[in-house]
Simulated scan of single mutants.
Amino acid sequence: MSASTPSLLAAAREAAAHQHYPQGALYMVATPIGNLADIGLRALQVLSLADTVACEDTRHTASLLQGYGLHKPLLALHEHNEAEAAQTVVQRLQEGQRVAYVSDAGTPGVSDPGARLVSAVTAAGLRCVPIPGASSITALLSVAGSPRTGGWDGRFVFAGFLSPKAAERQREVQHMADDARACVLLEAPHRIEALAKDLAALGERMLTVGRELTKQFEEVAHLSAASFPAWLQANAHRTRGEFVLLVHPQAADKAEAGALDTATQRTLDLLLTELPLKTAVKLCADITGQPRNTLYEAALARRKDRQAEAD
């Protein structure tokens, strides 16, 4: 990319320089998730204007900026010093500087440092400006489809990184099993095998696995949750690199199968006559073993029916 750097920066100025970039503002800049060519023109313009670039890793960011022919003063701001370094950023903004913040890849503040920085800047009455760009989440969603269900409505839950603690992670996976919606996860290479083992409990529910997206060894696979551990083990290279995963929504026939049977519905109705809704749902789940989400939806529907009858 270095050979075309002058023309790239000129293109950024031509496309984005007409916009106003106020001083004394923090710019949250999305950077490529692997391929340097995915940088946005607004991101380049902001980085070229910044007085300081705060970043998760100064060595990584120095290399990134050098790839675009940029050299800027860097300030380390990561998960271990974010609170303290945020105050340094606030001070520089109060002096009228433009400060850009970048994480190692993607959008800062989304499963990366940056959220506490934004809170500190906002609390000081200063402005935060988002500069969007590459995202592993939307990249995977764009090629996920829904092979088993024939399409879906695009709604999903973003869970990010699940707990590194086995028991808590297994509880989080159980919540996914009880939820018919799609769910997006992120995972690091050193924990992907443990996550795959836990996700296998979802059985035939479909996954789309993205590994090393936008990089040389990019891989996207569609497979059942039950087969995920075997897929990883089939090739030693598959446990390397960063992962983003989509747990697909439950198939329509599976969701319909979750409708309450007569005995469970009667138990829920009896509890609802004596207890608040959430308490009734909890006790009914304990008694019947049915998923809380299913019971909660049934309880809301029952309450709506009763209100309609009363009207």
Results as ranks from 00 to 15, higher is better:
K215F: 03
K254Y: 02
A11G: 07
L199D: 00
E84M: 12
A225M: 04
Q19R: 11
W231M: 02
P189W: 07
L162C: 08
R148L: 13
G106Y: 10
C183N: 12
T58M: 03
H20T: 12
E187R: 11
G133N: 07
E309I: 08
L207S: 05
R98S: 09
L74M: 05
I192G: 05
L275K: 12
A30F: 01
M206C: 09
L295G: 13
R127M: 08
A252E: 14
D153P: 00
G258N: 03
M176S: 01
L246N: 06
L64M: 06
K282F: 03
T288I: 14
A188P: 15
L223F: 10
L270M: 07
M28Y: 06
V118T: 04
S7A: 10
W152S: 07
T88I: 07
V89D: 02
A83Q: 13
T52K: 00
A200Y: 03
A17L: 06
P73E: 04
G109N: 09
L270C: 02
E242A: 01
V220M: 08
T107S: 14
C55Q: 01
T52E: 09
R292H: 10
L186H: 04
Q66W: 07
L185E: 15
D253G: 06
Q265P: 06
A194C: 14
T294R: 08
D178F: 01
S4T: 01
E212K: 14
T61M: 03
